[in-house]
Design a protein around this nucleic acid. Structure first.
Lengths: 185, 185
DNA sequence: GTTGCCATGTAAACTGTTACATGATTTC
DNA sequence: GAAATCATGTAACAGTTTACATGGCAAC
C-alpha cells in the first residue's frame, strides 16, 4: 500500500509534467541532469507498477499506427494529491542531515504544482533548518579538528561548505520568487 | 559473499580507526557528523554480521569486570585489504553523477590507510571527473533554461554550484596535501 | 541478415526500514 | 522502584541491483 520511495515520487512528478512511458522515464535518468536515479528497468517498471496499483498513475497502451507498443502513464487525481502532499511536507532537521537530494527534488517539482506562496515557504523552512544545523556542525569541526586525520577534517569542511552554499542558494532563490511575485501584483 | 554496501565500508573504516562495538558505531551515526547513515540496529547488526561472516572483522565479547556484555569488533588483515581496495578504486564519472557522498566517505578514511601519494592522486582524479562533467551540466542548463519551470531551473543551478564548490575544495585540499608533503622532505 | 535501438518486463539476491523483543545497569 | 540508558539482536516487509529474457523495427 505504501509508495513513499524517492524513485516513486520522481516518476510521479515527471509523469505529472507530461504523460510518459517507462522507457521515456529511463531515458530522462540516463540523459538529463537527473542522473542520480537508477535507469535500470528492474527499478523503474516495478515502481510504475506500484504507482498504478495504488491508483496514483494510469497506464494506457498507445496504439497509434505503426508504433511499437508503449504503455504511456498519466497521473490520476489521487496521484496529484499524493504528489502535492509530498511536496508540502514540512522540512525537518532529518531532511537536511540525511542528504539534501530529496529536498532538491521536491523543490524542482514545486513551481507548477503547489504555487509560489508555498514554494517561498519551503525555502524559508529550508533556510531555517540549515541555519539551525550549520553551527552545530561547525562547532563539531572546531572541537575535533585537532584530533582528526587531515583527510577526515577536510571532508568535514567540505560538508560545512556545502551547507553554506545551499544557504546562499536558498536566500537567492527566495529573493527571485519574491521579486517575481512582486512583479505580478 | 559480497559486502560492498556503503554502510559496510563505513563500519569497516571506523573499526579500522579503533575497535568498536555495534552500539559505539550506532552512537557515532547519531551524535557525530556522520548522520547521513542510519543508526538503526536493524541495519548495523546485520551489516556487522556480514562483515564477520566474510572475515573482514572479528568480534570478541568483552568481559571486563562488571560491564554489560559488549561485542567489540576489530579489523582483520583481510578486512584491511578490502578497505584499501575500496579506497584505491579509480574515480569514475558515475561516482560523481550518482552523488559525491560515497567519494567523500572514501576520502575521509584515506589519510591513515593508503598514504598521502594515493590521497593526492584521488583528489586529482576527482577534480578531473568534475571538470569533465560540469561543462555538460552547464550546457544542459543553458539549453533548457528557457523551457524549464523556475524552481526546476534553480534546483539545477544549485547542482552546478555544488560541483563548482567541490572543485574549489578539491584544489584547495590537494594544495594542502602537497604543502604537507613538501614540509616533510 | 545482423547489428543496434526501442520497449517491456521478470527473478533472485541483497540491503535497509520499521517495529518488536530482551535484559542489565545506572540514576533519581 | 521507575525511568533512562546501555547493548544486542530478530522478523516481516519493501525497495534496489544485477542479470536475464523477449520481440519488433530500422538501418546498413
Amino acid at each position: 500500500m505504501n509508495n513513499d520511495s524517492l524513485l516513486g515520487f520522481a516518476l510521479l512528478g515527471l509523469i505529472f509534467e507530461r504523460p510518459m512511458s517507462g522507457y521515456d522515464l529511463r531515458k530522462i535518468f540516463t540523459t538529463t541532469a537527473m542522473g542520480s536515479f537508477s535507469d535500470s528497468p528492474g527499478a523503474i517498471y516495478p515502481a510504475l507498477a506500484r504507482l498504478e496499483a495504488n491508483g496514483l498513475v494510469r497506464g494506457t497502451v498507445e496504439e497509434s499506427a505503426s508504433l511499437r507498443k508503449r504503455r504511456v502513464f498519466e497521473i490520476t487525481p489521487t496521484g496529484l494529491d499524493a504528489l502535492k502532499a509530498w511536496l508540502t511536507k514540512p522540512v525537518t532537521r532529518d531532511d537536511i542531515v540525511r542528504g539534501i537530494g530529496d529536498l532538491m527534488l521536491r523543490f524542482a517539482f514545486m513551481d507548477r504544482t503547489v504555487g509560489e506562496a508555498r514554494t517561498i515557504e519551503f525555502l524559508e523552512e529550508f533556510g531555517c533548518e540549515i541555519e539551525g544545523y550549520l553551527p552545530s556542525l561547525s562547532e563539531f569541526l572546531e572541537v575535533h579538528a585537532s584530533e582528526m586525520a587531515l583527510s577526515a577534517r577536510l571532508a568535514l569542511e567540505s560538508g560545512v561548505q556545502e551547507y553554506e552554499m545551499r544557504l546562499r542558494w536558498v536566500r537567492a532563490s527566495a529573493a527571485q520568487y519574491r521579486e517575481r511575485k512582486g512583479n505580478q501584483v
